[in-house]
């Protein structure tokens, strides 16, 4: 029987050592032919060594274990290692995939080893993982709870800054950029007003003009001009912003 070769990839070195020592106890015939500390190394190693088995940590810098498995062109049986919570683990409950939960126990590892041995003796080819992985990534990488924009990456003087959206008094479009005004002054972002309107919470951010979105929580005064136009003044800013007729309905009492 030819020797069976495996690689182990985890960004935490101690865990690579640990898994290797566990494997040497449980499956002494297995040869660990490579160790990787990040996703890119792992992928290189898989292409280079073409191991029979790869133990891949899911959360790794460079590439995740999932990405490594789906990008690798070699026929390798993959066992994922993860410290994910139970909710995420449900996504792995799939025939094609095997996974180990951290901390890895002897008992659980033995089960995996038995399963691998059986597959190799029966000459079952490694499962095609690409489709399965894509599905899992979709399930695990669900969008954050709030879909509205919370933080805005903006250029403030010469420095990029994150601005919390509720701190914004108003957005105003200028030639190429959109100006963001906070109590700290002006910052610039590249996103056009139209795109912002869709991303901001419409309860708080009202578009009052083609080129203006205001934070309704910061309204100080609304007044009628002589021509019947509405004008808004915001707390913390001296600028008077006009409301175009098509957006005047926002100010009717609800």
């Amino acid at each position: 029987m030819t020797e069976i070769r495996a690689i182990i990839a985890d960004d935490e070195e101690q865990l690579v050592i640990y898994l290797e020592s566990m494997l040497s106890r449980i499956w002494p015939e297995l040869v660990v032919c490579g160790r990787a500390g990040n996703g890119r190394e792992a992928l290189e190693l898989m292409e280079l060594e073409s191991p029979d088995i790869a133990f891949l940590d899911i959360k790794m810098p460079g590439l995740t274990g999932m990405e490594v498995a789906s990008q690798c062109s070699r026929q390798t049986r993959v066992v994922f290692i993860t410290a994910f919570n139970q909710y995420a683990v449900d996504a792995f409950e799939n025939e094609a995939m095997d996974y180990l939960l951290k901390p890895v126990t002897d008992e659980r590892l033995s089960k995996t080893v038995d399963r691998l041995k059986k597959q190799m003796e029966g000459d079952t080819p490694p499962a095609e993982l690409k489709g399965v992985i894509e599905e899992v990534i979709r399930a695990v990488g669900r969008p954050a709870a709030s879909s509205h924009l919370k933080w805005i990456k903006a250029l403030h003087r010469d420095c990029i800054r994150l601005i919390y959206v509720d701190d914004v008094l108003f957005f105003k479009s200028s030639a190429k950029y959109t100006t963001v005004l906070t109590v700290d002054g002006e910052s610039l972002i590249k996103k056009p007003i139209k795109e912002l309107t869709d991303e901001l919470d419409p309860e708080t951010f009202w578009r009052i003009h083609r080129g203006t979105i205001i934070n309704a929580g910061c309204i100080d005064k609304v007044s009628h001009s002589l021509t019947g136009r509405l004008a808004v003044k915001l707390k913390g800013s001296s600028e008077i912003l006009t409301v175009s007729r098509s957006y005047a309905h926002l100010f009717k009492q609800m």
Binding site: E12, Q14, L15, I17, Y18, S21, K59, A83, F84, N85, L101, K102, P103, V104
Partner: peptide, 18 residues
């Protein structure tokens, strides 16, 4: 945070051997 806790415990387990 479970991720933190379990990763840390894994490391401790490993260090007990090495």
């Amino acid at each position: 945070e479970p991720h933190f806790l379990f990763n840390t415990l894994s490391n401790i387990l490993s260090l007990l051997d090495t």
